[in-house]
Design a protein around this nucleic acid. Sequence first.
DNA 1: CCAGTCGCCGACTAAAATAATCGGACTTAG
DNA 2: CTAAGTCCGATTATTTTAGTCGGCGACTGG
Lengths: 151, 151
Amino acid sequence: MLKLSKKTDYALMAVQYMASKGTARIVNTKEIAEEYNIPVELLAKVLQKLGKKGLIVSQNGPKGGYVLAKSSTDISVLSVIQAIEGHVGITECYHNEDSTCMQMPRCNIRTPLRNIQNSIYGLLDSMSIEDMKEFGSATIVPQSRLNGHRT
Amino acid sequence: MLKLSKKTDYALMAVQYMASKGTARIVNTKEIAEEYNIPVELLAKVLQKLGKKGLIVSQNGPKGGYVLAKSSTDISVLSVIQAIEGHVGITECYHNEDSTCMQMPRCNIRTPLRNIQNSIYGLLDSMSIEDMKEFGSATIVPQSRLNGHRT
DNA sequence: CCAGTCGCCGACTAAAATAATCGGACTTAG
DNA sequence: CTAAGTCCGATTATTTTAGTCGGCGACTGG
């Protein structure tokens, strides 16, 4: 239904939060969880995933926590989403590499949907975490080819 | 997880199929279901929803069925998706009008996500069912502002 | 004029995805 | 050496999605 999972929301919030603190400051799970009212254990797993994907780096022990692995301008929104959700596809057959779709043989919407998906990918890839701050109220993608409303 | 539901897939396939048959030919649920290996009862409900939204018109009785209510150039992909999924939002708070989101007070990703969502809307709205045929293997949205891959 | 074909509708069950919890192990600053 | 932190797998609860069932109502051809 075209909705992001809460885990992804949490991930974006957390990364955004870390970005706002800069690379000098190390933040821990509890701090972020309290800031946004997120269940700690859940956020913990999310951050672990981000760590394994190399988007953030972890520091163990007391005074430990996380920092962004690179500049917020170099972290795309897409990379965060994919870190949490794995391979994202708009349809079953693009979501699961080895899906057995009953409709495959005669499917008439695969290719066009792939194009839509690629456009969305492009959009998400072109937007960085930094952009999410800056463009708080601007439109990102040129919609020059839009030709008015249909029903 | 940014995936369309099967019902929506079915709806798009069905509409596409009807478009391919033209407005003269009336098609029934069973015919479409067999063409694409879709469970009839499920497809039936999908078509009913499309009917209620005025995208297709129904004909009762024997030899009954459905026809597109208007030209395939005047039916946007978005309208089909919305007919099935209702109001679509990329996040909980945009999906559900009256959602009580724990993160609301301090949420730092609402506005940027809304922009992303609007871009997706624009894309889906600008694409008609007819376009889905034509652009079987073309890219729809100009991605001129893309600036290479990040992680 | 009535029998069979079709759409219409709501309630129901089944399966899958998501959200959240729990328990315990490993790491390290103080 | 211990408390504060990350790490990790297993488990449960909740919600969403997929699919099923049964009956009603509309219509058309014979």
